[in-house]
Write a protein that binds this DNA or RNA. Structure first.
Lengths: 335, 335
DNA sequence: CTGAAAGCGCTTACAG
DNA sequence: CTGAAAGCGCTTACAG
């Protein structure tokens, strides 16, 4: 089925020129006279020749590949980001390699940061060890970031985004506002929690420990938060909650609804991310929209700039947006 | 920041052996005497040497990469499949390259099917041109398939899966059952539509043109189907609908709920896929569960088998499961 | 068990 | 404008 691959020497023989000339026609046609060029081009067409990338890369000391290090490929949150990355890397002539940092061990992580594996790295996992990444292949961080790693970061302002959600609820008249956080140790968790606390403090609203539920971004964490919330006395528990992810907000809403609680009449909910389905559930979720595709695109563009020798050290902060839908309302009178 | 990469000759010099010996210690240590091996290993450790993949691949005439051709990376449907693929490719020593067939042109498609680019292909897009893929790199098809392309396929039995949904609704007592299909021309659309028609016919139930809505798997298509369904007279329209995707089912439910229609009291809905959120919305969606991660894993395993020289021509059919939740019930009396 | 040498398929100074 | 030659960094028959 598969025939022997034609190589540059086959084309050279057919065109009656040297391999050097064939190579020049392919990479820098203007260097070659029109006649020779035409002869080579027809030989290329006749043989269906396509250059061997491994050989070309070896010669150029590059790989043509960029690795995206994803914390959890199975999480749909990353699909639009990866799509954004792919949309700029492809046209720029780079391959997109994807590695799931959770399933691949630390040893493989080092492999990915090898110059012979990839020309650059897009790091989407802030929990990676800085020392494994430092001083290796050029990289940019997107969404999350590794605390002690100096690299261009493309991200949102998580603290003020979280503040936006709080402000919206406070404006509606809520006084007891709770927060369901991301996983402990995650950089986003800390930033969003801090932003929540700051926004609450700025309005003179309380933020006791009991108003904070430890989550992990998952649907199940939202369900667990619902169980805890339901267990609190109705006149003490928060009348509104902000969540560090839409998935958790969704898990919470589903769980409380099964207990006869109405959203937003009995409790207001604000998510975080603006994943796709969330606008179509009932109630449609009020949330903080992250520019998923843009985060991926801009991260890829910045990496390309670094590879082209224009680092530009500052972080790129992309804007978020509060999307008000139907899961938030003024608190019930008397609450 | 980055120092010159150490290469095999550096290690050889330090260990006082030839590059051939270093190479042997790395790839086939048993070939080398214990003393030499130890000397080489400590030289490797001292220099932090890691082999250059491009060179090794060139010599081996392989790339170490597998390309997954995805119809739309932004669609979260693929995240678990890709995760399954990555979980077997990584440990097997392959890189996973991802290409979005919608954003990359036909020319780039040919590039991906180049032996110098990838050792194999996992095709997740049935709308690709067979001739571009034929006679090139080894490949397997997963989920979807290209009609005229002979290759191992890893998929579900879409027709009987669709039949499962119909049978469930018929068992509940529904007589007017509709279907919202996938995009025209898609192989899954055809199989699921045929399975729906066959199951309906087997039970002597009607399946008029008016009971079929043309969808495209998207949330918006579900909304459009809702508008059409709402426009039909209540005593004529289907009392239950099966959908070719959960996203469409979700769009439908959201839209009809906003019009005061209750699911499942006023209309029963069965989705297809079992994506993550769907169990947490209200009502929780009854659906056909596809084994997403397993589809990816098995596809990768079959490709590995092909690359190892054990093709095994038949398709692998993975089982599906009807997951009954809360979006289906007996039709209202008198309907 | 080990080394010298050829070669994987390209590209690019260096001459001419 | 074009060719001969070296070399990118490995691996593997082939000798010994």
């Amino acid at each position: 089925m598969r025939h022997i691959r034609t190589k540059i020497s086959d084309v050279a023989r057919l065109a009656g020129v040297s391999t050097a000339t064939v190579s020049r026609v392919l990479s820098n046609p203007a260097m070659v006279s029109a006649d020779t060029r035409a002869a080579v081009q027809s030989a290329v067409a006749a043989t269906g020749y396509r250059p061997n990338m491994a050989a070309r890369n070896l010669r150029h000391r590059r790989t043509g590949g960029i690795v995206a290090l994803v914390p959890d490929l199975a999480n749909p949150f990353f699909s639009k980001i990866l799509s954004g990355i792919a949309s700029v890397l492809g046209p720029a002539g780079y391959n997109l390699l994807i590695a799931d940092t959770r399933t691949s061990g630390a040893e493989r992580l080092l492999d990915y940061a090898e110059p012979s594996r990839a020309d650059g790295l897009i790091v989407l996992d802030g929990s990676l060890p800085a020392e494994a990444l430092r001083g290796r292949v050029p990289l940019v961080e997107a969404c999350e970031w590794v605390p002690d790693l100096a690299a261009p970061r493309v991200r949102i302002d998580n603290a003020s985004a979280a503040g936006l959600a709080v402000a919206h609820l406070a404006d509606l008249g809520h006084r007891r506002i709770g927060h369901v956080s991301g996983p402990a140790g995650n950089v986003l968790t800390q930033a969003r929690l801090a932003g929540t606390a700051a926004a609450l403090a700025a309005r003179g609203l309380p933020f006791p420990q009991t108003a904070i539920h430890d989550g992990d971004f998952s649907l199940e964490a939202g369900q667990r938060a619902a169980a805890l919330w339901l267990a609190q006395p109705a006149d003490h528990r928060p009348t509104a909650l902000t969540f560090a992810s839409d998935a958790m907000a969704c898990g919470f809403i589903g769980a409380v609804q099964r207990h006869g609680i109405r959203v937003p009449q009995d409790v207001s909910v604000v998510g975080f991310d603006d994943i796709e389905l969330i606008a179509h559930i009932t109630p449609a979720l009020t949330t903080i929209r992250q520019p998923h595709a843009a985060l991926g695109r801009v991260a890829a563009q910045r990496l390309l700039a670094v590879l082209a020798g224009q680092p530009g050290a500052e972080d790129t902060i992309l804007p978020v947006e509060l999307v008000i839908r139907s899961s938030t309302a003024a608190p019930a009178p008397g609450r």
